[in-house]
């Protein structure tokens, strides 16, 4: 797109590229390299760019002390199941909105989408006593269900706009072929829409995976704690000094999802944006 023949243009381009790349990627590098530094090297006024010797002690203590692995498991479990639940609900609702005509359609869609002006923190004020009333406070199930709040409206819209551009003729052909609506949905529509389903699942997963507010408030026991609040409670307190441990634990907490996203990112970038801005 840009014409970079002159050296000025090249230099300008490179400078901007390096500047933003540095802002984006250096923090990750720094966290990683800090995780491998022994405390002596970590706490000096003049930091080293590379770890002098690859010290693995922080990783050891991150795993052996505290409940990092259990918390990771809890996080993955709640986030994955809520993401799948969310994507399933969103697929059904999105299909209903995209491919059928009925009087209540537009108001219902607007109602669901307007949920974006309901602050999550405000909803929590009611969700907390609700879960308490049905004995789901401090359970993984309760947290999983509550996570619906974050992504359902936008996920529904994402599936809606995906289904919207599926050709009607495909559905009509199946109809003429004699398939019922339900069969059309799971034999024709969903297999074709698998990429969109994955995108929405990932999107919903990100919300729950990144969450701190709900998991911190709705989970109180060590056994059900997820990774976000777990890290926070362990490493950030008035006089925390274990930055090496914090970085190592952070690395471990982030790694599984980073791997998954590295594998799936191509379709994800396109998918997330397709619904939101057109």
């Amino acid at each position: 797109m840009f014409e970079l023949r002159s050296w000025q243009a090249k230099a300008g381009f490179m400078a901007l590229l390096l500047l933003i790349a540095f802002f984006l990627f250096f923090p990750v590098y720094w966290a990683l390299s800090s995780a491998f530094k022994g405390n002596g090297e970590l706490y000096q006024m003049d930091p080293t760019l590379f770890p002098n010797d690859f010290y693995l002690g922080h990783f050891m203590t991150a795993i052996s002390e505290g409940n990092l692995l259990l918390q990771l498991k809890n996080s993955l479990l709640t986030s994955t199941s809520s993401a799948l639940l969310n994507a399933a609900l969103a697929s059904l609702a999105g299909y209903s909105f995209a491919k059928f005509e009925y009087p209540a359609k537009k108001p219902l869609m607007l109602l669901i989408l307007s949920a974006q002006m309901f602050p999550f923190g405000v909803l929590l004020i009611s969700i907390y006593p609700m879960l308490q009333a049905v004995n789901l406070l401090d359970t993984k199930l309760g947290l999983t269900i509550s996570y619906i709040v974050f992504a359902l409206p936008v996920s529904t819209y994402m599936m809606y706009s995906y289904f919207k551009q599926l050709p009607n003729e495909l559905i009509e052909a199946a109809k003429v072929d004699g398939a019922s609506n339900l069969k059309i949905f799971y034999r024709i529509v969903m297999p074709i829409s698998f990429p969109a389903f994955i995108t929405v699942t990932l999107y919903a997963f990100m919300w729950s995976w990144n969450d701190l507010l709900y998991s911190m408030t709705l989970i109180t026991s060590e056994e059900n704690r997820t990774v976000g609040p777990g890290l926070l409670l362990r490493y950030i307190n008035e006089n925390n000094s274990d930055w090496g441990g914090a970085m190592a634990a952070s690395f471990l907490a982030a790694a599984p999802v980073v791997v998954v996203f590295a594998l799936l990112q191509k379709q994800f970038i396109g998918g997330v944006t397709s619904g939101a801005v057109k």
Partner: peptide
């Protein structure tokens, strides 16, 4: 570059907060 760009976004909030808290640490 494009692949790596996603990185900051997929880190759990707490992790991102840690990374920056450490980078902005008043002493080290």
């Amino acid at each position: 570059f494009r692949t790596m760009t996603l990185l900051p976004w997929i880190l759990p909030s707490t992790v991102s907060a840690f990374v920056w808290a450490w980078m902005l640490n008043g002493k080290y």
